[in-house]
Write a protein that binds this DNA or RNA. Structure first.
Lengths: 129, 129
DNA sequence: TAGACTTATTCGGTTTATTGAATATAATTA
DNA sequence: TAATTATATTCAATAAACCGAATAAGTCTA
């Protein structure tokens, strides 16, 4: 594995990034770790499909996962990958803002989003009074 | 073409870089433009093979070419691609020096190398006298 | 333990990339 | 114009990636 040519090891990184769905997934993971069903809701891909792409990212060493009850939370294990992506974005003249154009579902069923929603509702309940 | 998803346009860049031979070629073009036979001599790939990979790089908008007599000289049209490569290299902990590990042939038949060799011989002729 | 829920894996058909071999094209020189 | 040189393209076989469908594997709750 480490006796591989440099160019081949480099190529492996780029190969992991050469797929739109995987880039979308990484973009979702830019700010925080997230469970698969969160990505499912926000990206609109099927669960199995996302899981397949996550496997590629995991095998490339770009993401790690952690189980918490029912959910498995993925996070970027190599944050420098975002330097790569941002650099490529700059080459295309794409501003970083347009990156957040992922579908924002009316309601994400994932526990993290549910918790946040509950917090907000409690918040507005307080402010309403 | 420009109505493509951002992630798809990004993916295209990475797709062009996902191949070891193409990375080797870009590495040769890092310092200067070079003809195909120069790459052939320095990388050890067949001419047609290099030409095929150059076509991929050209279609990805990463290199441009210019004819000069018999030779066609290729150059990197988007130098920021080296930021990408260097960034990926950093992720792997590969120093930039090892990048220059391309085969150094005893004699490169390309006109640019021939010119340089002649200059050197003239030089040593002078110093010999 | 049964059932519900989330995520992973396997299988198979389709598409795309790779790459060697042969050949074509374009510029140059004699 | 014919021969030469450098490069590009085409073809075909193999390999790899893609991705939908079905199903398996963990984990939690009742």
């Amino acid at each position: 594995m480490s006796d591989m040519q440099d160019s081949e090891r480099l190529a492996r990184i780029f190969k992991a990034l050469m797929h739109p769905a995987r880039l979308d997934i990484l973009e979702i993971l830019r700010d925080d770790e997230h469970c698969v069903c969160h990505m499912e809701a926000h990206l609109g891909y099927r669960q199995a499909y996302i899981s397949q792409q996550l496997t590629v990212l995991r095998e490339a060493g770009l993401v790690d996962d952690r189980r918490d009850g029912w959910n498995i939370f993925y996070r970027v294990s190599e944050p420098r990958v975002f330097n790569l992506i941002d650099q490529a974005r700059a080459m295309l003249g794409i501003s970083g803002d347009t990156a957040r154009a992922a579908t924002q579902p009316a309601a994400c069923p994932c526990p993290k989003c549910a918790a946040r929603k509950n917090a907000h509702e409690k918040q507005s309940l307080v402010t309403d009074v």
